[in-house]
Amino acid sequence: MADAGTSTALAQRGRNAKKPPLLLLWERSQRSPWVASVQFAAFAALLLWLAMLGAEQMGYLWQWYNIPQHFFREVDGEWIMGPLVKGLLVTLQIAAWCIILTLAAGLVTALLRMSDSLTGSALATGYLELVRNTPLLVQLYLFYFVISPILGVDRFWTGIICLTFYEATFVAEIIRAGIISVDRGQWEAADAGGLTRRDAYRYVILPQAVPLMLPPLTGQIINLIKHSAIVSVIAVTDLTTEGRNLIADTFMSFEVWFTVAGVYLVMTVSLSFFVTWLEHKIKVRT
């Protein structure tokens, strides 16, 4: 049997006959992933070149060689952490605290929202609307200028409390959506089987709902890491703050910002690969 490539005789009867070979070659190249990749690389290089050109015109002095020492530096045969690594550790510390607190606060909010209680659901709804309809930055200023003097906490914990206050609303919605998305028939079957509400949750609903929640919850951790950069506004010494300080000291704006952005990208992109993997795994299982 002839394959599609060799059937020139029949192709003559089609429209191909009218087309010059160069055009055909061009059309075929449009479908190749390699050609697209090369095009993309060229495009990226062009953008980069334009940026470099602009920087050159400003008389910008590139000092990439100065960046590594701000991660790690060797002093007297000992490796010490540079500001960027210290900042990264603070960012991770904030993220870790926030994940724990956010899960707890989100769970309580979700339960209150779904409860029979009048004031409970009203409180939860009010809280969600309040957070949803004001900017995170304004919330941060509110916490920094108003709440933290009242409670007497330092800026590090102000940052954590504010981020928790903000992120918990998303977690609450994820948990609620996960529970509600369990098929109605499952609730009815649990009721019909005479399970109490608690047993229905424990043995029927949650085992099905939790796997559904995991990917969006991981996605929320990505958002948490992204949003945590905002605490630099109140001078918590996280990665972004360290980056800004470094720029103030060394004037290497481009290098430092690109490096900081790169570090964030590495964290978030690797987490999003994890989410994709998780989603795939859960889809396969169910």
Partner: peptide, 23 residues
């Protein structure tokens, strides 16, 4: 799209050519 062999409809062979496909 087929992977092997050929399909000719009304004298026009189906290839990746978009013009042929539209026709």
């Amino acid at each position: 799209s087929h992977d092997q062999g050929r399909i000719v409809v009304d004298g026009i062979e189906l290839t990746h050519d978009m013009g042929n496909i539209l026709a």
